[in-house]
Structure formats: structure tokens, C-alpha cells
């Protein structure tokens, strides 16, 4: 059983207009096997939270803490966080020219596990995971994300999620830009990883659509860099019906 704990997190970015505080005191605790949906309007800081957990250099933590089973995540490098069991499925996965998917997946798996995967079982595992996510076999020989469509990039993120078996996954708007078939395929992948590895999940989304496929235990409404309200799945239903107006009016 693992715990990812975020306490009173304040995060700023440098902009041309100066320093801007994006997260203004976020507290959140996720344990293994739980699915937390983070919902909120654009610009409320959801993606900042995701990128900060992964350690993107653009985001500066000014106060607060993130710990994984008591270990200080903020002291870890980007690679160390992944090695510790954190995974960020990115909203905009990056194209890496010259590096094939096969090479990338094997290199990452080796770095995460501290030893190279056994070639035969690994190759089979990759192939099967690709089939389940309906990713063409020829993607293995293509460069990472190069020329992939938006939907293909998201599937490849979930492919990694399934292969790398993290303790906690942060899915940053994985559902955006997906048609309904792709959404179902991607959701099934997340559910499989959840079942297989007891993964804790932070599901960041703007829409409730994905919650038809991935059932959250907890829902957090993000407004202006803070969690405005915690609740169960019923909170998502309310958002579906009434939108964010109630919360936005409260801060206005």
C-alpha cells in the first residue's frame, strides 16, 4: 500500500509579466487502488499540478510538499520520480526524433527497473499491450510520437502506463481530443493498469465523459489554484448537469 500526499502546495511560474502563482495551497492524498478525478475549468491549475508532480522545470514550488510513502518527491529529479513509481500521461506528448518506440520503451523499462527486461518476454508483452490498445504493430519501429495523430499519442501514453506499472499515475486530460472509440480503448487500458497493479490514479479532466468509463472514488473540483470542493462520484454528476458556475460564482 502506497500513499501520495500533497500538502498545501503553492506553485509559481515565470511569465513575461513577472512571477505568477498558479497553485495557491493544494492538499490531496491518494492511496494505492484509488481513483481521484480532478475536475475544473480551463486555467484552474489542473495541468500545473500534474507537471509539478512530474517535476517539470518550468514550475517552481514556493511552499508545501509532495511525498511518496514519506519520501520527499520535490527533492527528486524528474527521472528519479519516475523510478520511484510516478507516471505522468501527458496532455501533449512530445515527438522525439531519431528514437524508435522499441528503443525508447526498452531503455525506459531498463531505467525504471534497474535492469534490462528479458528480451523474449518483453517483446511479447509489448506486442500484446499494443494489440489491446489497438496500436498498429509498425508503430514499434517508428520514432517516438513522430507523425502520430493526437489519438495515437494518447494510446501510446497508456501503452507506457501499462508496461511501466507505476504506483501512481497522473493522467493529464488524456481524454481530450479522443473520439468515443479511442476514449473507450484508452479507458480500458487505464482500468487494466488499475486492476493489475493496484495503481493509484489522478485523473485530470475538463469533461465528465471519461467518467462513464473510469469510475472515480473521489472527485475534486479545482477552481483558481485551489480545491474548491471534495466529494464522491455524485459531484461529477452535478458538474455534468450544472457546470462550474456555482463554484466560479463563489470565487467571483
Amino acid at each position: 500500500m502506497s500513499t501520495l500526499e500533497i500538502k498545501d502546495l503553492h506553485v509559481s511560474i515565470e511569465t513575461e509579466q513577472g512571477t505568477k502563482e498558479i497553485l495557491k495551497g493544494v492538499s490531496l492524498t491518494i492511496t494505492s487502488g484509488e481513483i481521484h478525478a480532478i475536475m475544473g475549468p480551463n486555467g484552474s491549475g489542473k495541468s500545473t499540478l500534474a507537471a509539478t508532480i512530474a517535476g517539470h522545470p518550468r514550475y517552481e514550488v514556493t511552499s508545501g510538499s509532495i511525498t511518496l510513502d514519506g519520501e520527499d518527491v520535490l527533492e527528486m529529479g524528474v527521472d528519479e520520480r519516475a523510478q520511484a513509481g510516478l507516471f505522468l500521461a501527458m496532455q501533449y506528448p512530445v515527438e522525439v526524433p531519431g528514437v524508435t518506440m522499441t528503443n525508447f520503451l526498452r531503455t525506459a523499462k531498463t531505467a525504471l527497473d534497474g535492469e534490462a527486461p528479458k528480451l523474449r518476454t518483453w517483446t511479447k508483452e509489448v506486442r500484446e499491450a499494443m494489440e489491446q490498445l489497438k496500436i498498429d504493430a509498425d508503430f514499434a519501429s517508428r520514432n517516438v510520437n513522430e507523425g502520430f495523430s493526437g489519438g495515437e499519442k494518447k494510446r501510446v501514453e497508456i501503452l507506457q502506463l501499462e508496461l511501466f506499472k507505476p504506483k501512481f499515475a497522473v493522467l493529464d486530460e488524456t481524454d481530450s481530443g479522443l473520439d468515443i472509440d479511442a476514449l473507450r480503448v484508452v479507458s480500458e487500458g487505464v482500468n487494466r493498469a488499475h486492476e493489475a497493479n493496484g495503481m493509484g490514479t489522478m485523473l485530470i479532466t475538463h469533461y465528465t465523459r471519461i467518467l462513464n468509463y473510469i469510475k472515480p472514488d473521489h472527485v475534486h473540483v479545482f477552481i483558481d489554484g485551489r480545491v474548491a470542493e471534495h466529494g464522491g462520484p455524485e459531484l461529477a454528476d452535478e458538474l455534468e448537469e450544472k457546470g462550474y458556475d456555482r463554484f466560479l460564482a463563489a470565487t467571483a
Partner: peptide
């Protein structure tokens, strides 16, 4: 960042790309 977020150390990530 993308490669490191998958656990690959910085030096190795740079070499991989070049």
C-alpha cells in the same frame, strides 16, 4: 523532460536523442 519523465537519466536521454 519527456524521456526523463519515463525514468531515463539525463545523460542517457541526451545520448539517446543525438
Amino acid at each position: 523532460f519527456y524521456l526523463m519523465a519515463r525514468g531515463i537519466p539525463e545523460k542517457e536521454a541526451r545520448q539517446l536523442v543525438v
